[in-house]
Design a protein around this nucleic acid. Structure first.
Lengths: 340, 340
DNA sequence: CTGTTAGCGCATTCAT
DNA sequence: ATGAATGCGCTAACAG
């Protein structure tokens, strides 16, 4: 009936030493004679001793839990970031206390209190990927705070974001490597930070080749399917020659593709299409129909989590924004259905 | 410089009472004179006292954290379950310790130890939605264990799953309500538990109308896009008349739709299509192009989490499998582009 | 009703 | 090199 969990005291007793030395030895700290060390280790092994984390936490004043503040947890793009972060933290024995406050001021305040009461060792704020920076909550804490998938409005904070500029470069270089020279760009308004980054990246590689976007500044509307169709129609109507389009997201890419096909254009022969988001990958559908940029959102979460974990262990913690480069996934819309 | 966190002792001191009474009063337990209660509450309020959770946990032998064992955390269908669960637990002040063991025996064993050492108050096992039951790990714990999005192989366990039978019924009833009578079914092999459930649900409502599936037992292959095309081609080749198809998933539905369109059939006029998964919704793309069943995976996670939380608080915990009914999302593929 | 006394399990000075 | 003594912050059984 001794279902009682075994404690350090038990180990010490069996090893014939005091609790304090047992504690030291088991944690590999301080000096101890090989003899006693041996006895202690053996006793611990025999009893299958596992230190009670609660005791350690109280004694050490840490909780081994990270507060996670989410702007929109159930969002399609937030979920990969969140799961990436939580599994990365879990792998480091850090538990996670999630609070999905929609930036409701009162809710946030309550959450901050709650996190403090729980003595969280760090805070991870997961944004919604929207271009607008979120209010910094850093000064509400004495522990490290990291922002992921969203920028804090305080430049002294550290945040992890997808690198939109590199994404634009990847798309551009890919198309150039395929011999395309007349490249258009369909995307959301340049007021949108992420749209602007991708556009800048694209234009930079074009400029390096002495090229400019077809249609001048590109076609900028919103992220919708409707805009994708509209942009394609506008481009066709303009009469300007083109042989490729980099679309700001997959939704636009698919809609535009439909319009092009209906207009009798062949993809990728007449026009190559590159999208962004890798929606298919998000759904585990690796049909490689559309060439696209995968922003590796899960890695954004992972990297942010690991940086936070390091910071807690006394690692470096320097303000700034860290960018995670995505990867280009080749698909039929640019390289065609290869016989692979 | 008194950055020191205020403790119960401070409150007690100011209120001029002992720590224990302060504890009692602040937790609303036992009796206390209105006078002292007043003083204590006031002192706590004035100091902005918040109990140190670590102290409570150690004293109460609980950790307020749930161990989450995942089979495949980054999976597209697992993520909604996981985020649903973690946010629901967070809302109840329960933190979450995630371990993504791919059912690796050794890894699982290590995880179980870790969870015990952390004194988790409960365990949530998140499966991968595959038909095959997973090995029960319940006997490794003395705390409540709940399985979500996957069945345990021990009938004494409690698990939360999507209700595939109801999904089949929903699809069937929807098609019948539209006047369709010649309904086919494209899905994965009936060896697959989830495929079988959906098929059974569909056939049951058809049977109630004295109808049978077009093509007898339906077209069963796998979950792939390729199979969707193949099934559509086979059905067309069979020459059997049909006016609707319920597809086991959206991937099959989309592929089949393409074949039908190429064959000159109009959707939904000639053939109505119902899918399953609501992939578009998973990606926040509410284009309502395809009528589909949304399995509400996030709710599967939420319900499982809440049940677990209740069980921990002494709520009921009766073995069995709980089914979460999905919902049918109407789209153009059955009701057409209505002027709504 | 209220205060005293013990723990909870471990880490950590400080002596020895 | 080892052990005794404290403290972490709170809860709970028992007295008064």
């Amino acid at each position: 009936m001794s279902k009682k969990a075994i404690s350090l005291k038990d180990v010490a007793a069996i090893a014939g030493v005091s609790v304090s030395t047992a504690s030291k030895v088991l944690r590999g700290q301080g000096k101890a004679s090989d003899a006693t060390r041996e006895r202690i280790m053996e006793a611990a092994a025999r009893l299958d001793y596992e230190p009670n984390a609660l005791g350690q936490f109280l004694a050490q004043g840490r909780s081994a839990t990270i507060g996670v503040l989410t702007l929109n947890a159930p969002g399609a793009f937030t979920m990969p970031v969140l799961t990436g972060a939580t599994t990365a933290l879990g792998a480091r024995d850090l538990s996670v206390l999630v609070a999905d406050s929609r930036l409701d001021r009162a809710l946030i305040a309550a959450t901050v209190r709650k996190f403090r009461a729980r003595k969280v060792d760090g805070l991870l704020v997961v944004g919604d990927g929207s271009g607008t920076a979120m209010r910094s909550v850093t000064d509400g804490f004495t522990v490290p705070v990291v922002y992921a998938y969203g920028l804090s409005d305080d430049p002294a904070d550290v945040s992890f974001l997808h690198n939109g500029f590199v994404a634009g470069e990847l798309a551009g270089r890919h198309l150039l490597s395929l011999g395309r020279r007349r490249i258009a760009h369909f995307s959301a308004s340049l007021d949108d930070q992420s749209a602007r980054e991708r556009a800048d990246g694209l234009r930079s590689v074009l400029a390096a080749e002495g090229l400019d976007l077809v249609g001048g500044r590109g076609f900028h509307g919103d992220w919708s399917r409707a805009w994708g169709r509209r942009a394609a129609e506008d481009l066709l109507a303009s009469g300007e020659p083109f042989d490729a389009v980099f679309c700001g997201n997959d939704t636009i890419a698919v809609a535009a593709s439909e319009v092009f096909r209906q207009a009798g254009l062949r993809i990728p022969d007449d026009v190559a299409i590159v999208g962004f988001d890798n929606l298919a990958g998000l759904m585990d559908q690796h049909d490689r129909a559309l060439t696209t940029i995968d922003p590796l959102l899960s890695e954004v979460g992972t990297r942010a989590a690991e940086y936070l974990a390091e910071a807690i262990d006394g690692g470096e913690f320097t303000p700034g924004v860290h960018r995670v480069d995505g990867v280009l996934i080749e698909g039929d819309s640019t390289v065609g259905p290869l016989p692979r």
